[in-house]
Design a protein around this nucleic acid. Sequence first.
DNA 1: CTGAAAGCGCTTACAG
DNA 2: CTGAAAGCGCTTACAG
Lengths: 352, 352
Amino acid sequence: MVFDKSRSLRSITSRDVAKAANVSQALVSRAFSGNGRIAPETRNRILAIAEEIGWQPNALARSMVTGDAPLVAVITTRLHFDWRAQVLSHLLNTIQQWHLKPLLFYAESDDDVDRLLEETLSWRTRGVIVTAGIVQPRRAKAIVSRGQFLAALNRPAHHPNAFSVATDNLQGGAMAAALLLDEAGRDALVLSGRQGDWASSLRTKGFVDAVAVRGGTARVWHNETMSTEAGKQCAAAYLDLPAGERPKAVFSTNDAMALGFMDGLRGQLSAPSDFSLIGFDNLPSSSWTPYELTTFEQPLEEMVLRIVGYVNNHQQNAGRNFPAHNPERVAGDEIIYCAPKIVLRSTTKAKQ
Amino acid sequence: MVFDKSRSLRSITSRDVAKAANVSQALVSRAFSGNGRIAPETRNRILAIAEEIGWQPNALARSMVTGDAPLVAVITTRLHFDWRAQVLSHLLNTIQQWHLKPLLFYAESDDDVDRLLEETLSWRTRGVIVTAGIVQPRRAKAIVSRGQFLAALNRPAHHPNAFSVATDNLQGGAMAAALLLDEAGRDALVLSGRQGDWASSLRTKGFVDAVAVRGGTARVWHNETMSTEAGKQCAAAYLDLPAGERPKAVFSTNDAMALGFMDGLRGQLSAPSDFSLIGFDNLPSSSWTPYELTTFEQPLEEMVLRIVGYVNNHQQNAGRNFPAHNPERVAGDEIIYCAPKIVLRSTTKAKQ
DNA sequence: CTGAAAGCGCTTACAG
DNA sequence: CTGAAAGCGCTTACAG
């Protein structure tokens, strides 16, 4: 009985296939890996028998032996939000094409990320891609010094041999200012996120600075969560302002708030007659009939392509201890910025 | 030189830590695993030294030795769509809580899924969760017979020891029919998806059958992709109908089409005065001011909880060759259905 | 409480 | 072209 049980628990190995095919265990390894010489007929016979038995090489054992697991760690969070689901589908697709497998580390909150980054190390992955939280410099060093790649999306990577791409939020904010002030006067309002939010802060700063340069004034309304609900509350506050004091140039640091803002004003005020409005993200819903929101599209595909370039470069240099300095790296700047693309629609008067 | 290179490539192992701590390699293993006796001081010393060196146990090696990788395969696709991103964030969170790691298999198309399911096997995961494509019976058998769990979301799992939860689409369709015919007469229209689409077909069938029972008639408009754009095209077709022949009871098998339908009619016809409309999915945007769409919410959390129950049950029985028959299994029915929840809003006259 | 040794399931020189 | 053997980095009885 005990014997039976242990037998049934033991998993099938290449040895079982070898026995069934009447060859050495080494040959069944060669049949599957394609490395080393093997007679075509032998190979086919082994493959057929393995198929019949339902055996495939154990990827874990292979990875251990070769010292190289075809794995990449991906750190993410809040998939049901914003841009992350979009980026992830590009990213996962790409990783698939590299014939690597994504091992997902899902952060409950941004504070979780550092712990996950550490956990990552146990798995001896080729590298890690971070789309959430903050990359601590010492953590970055720990990863890079093992020869793994480290790519950060929309956040600093904090290491000279790591890689970081981000939307050029500062420039987006500045562009919004230029466009809005031209058509809606010098009195501006920013619907912004938390002070600590990296992307939103930069968009706000880009906008505010550009407004100042043009001799305008901008007030900033911070919102804890950048939701449609928050946008509605801003609308209420906007209506509370004496009609003459309502800024006509409104920039929202994301689309969700902009859409909520429009809904909160619906039936009373509308763009672009009463004010001009620009958002950020180009959500699918921003193009819908009741909104037609002018907004910025994040260059997600471009950013993913940049990461692809970095990773490919890293793979080619794999094994060298000091990988070539990244050719894309701009001197003195740790982050590659990609320009957001303005999508002109009906909440501004400007035409494409 | 060659010597130097190979040395720098060799990764750090428990042996290095052992050497530095002046103990046997077995002890450093015990320090980390918590298994076997070890003096607390020894343990702390080892942990400190490992931390300093920056070493952590190799998860691949551990998994190989113990014959149990803390991995679960998740098959998914089109993350930027529908419900999948939502489900995935629940799922990934849960998997994290099990202290397992999700290995993602991203299907380019549904036809890809069978191949991915096979690839899954190499990784010797605890089990696999499928949220895309079709599970072939023989593939299901291959997975289950290895002792892995197999859970399918919104699709059949095709194996008595596997598990399948789905939204009760048939019931949803029937509920929609009851509600719509009561307030909008017996002439009905279904905005449906492809004939082969599992969920959409069942919603349609549930609706059509219930309409027939009530002595009404329903016409069905199939759409290749269930997008807002398709909904707009349906609106155009609807307007092309002579005013007297326009069905007043409209059921859309997803929200995206319903929203597009409303937008296509905007300014000409609106619900619930000219017709009544019910969607399916309860997208965030369905609650927005210009829509206020009555719709069904998929019981995603409940479905994930069911999967959790099945997996926990499986884990407890791990090692047994024939896992206990699932207690949830309803005789003769391979799928556990969870009722969708109606969300009454303003495109119907009915009040909650 | 600690260590030496066997073994997990493979891959890969090395002989033949 | 094929096989025997060493070894990947750990864990876990088994002795001491």
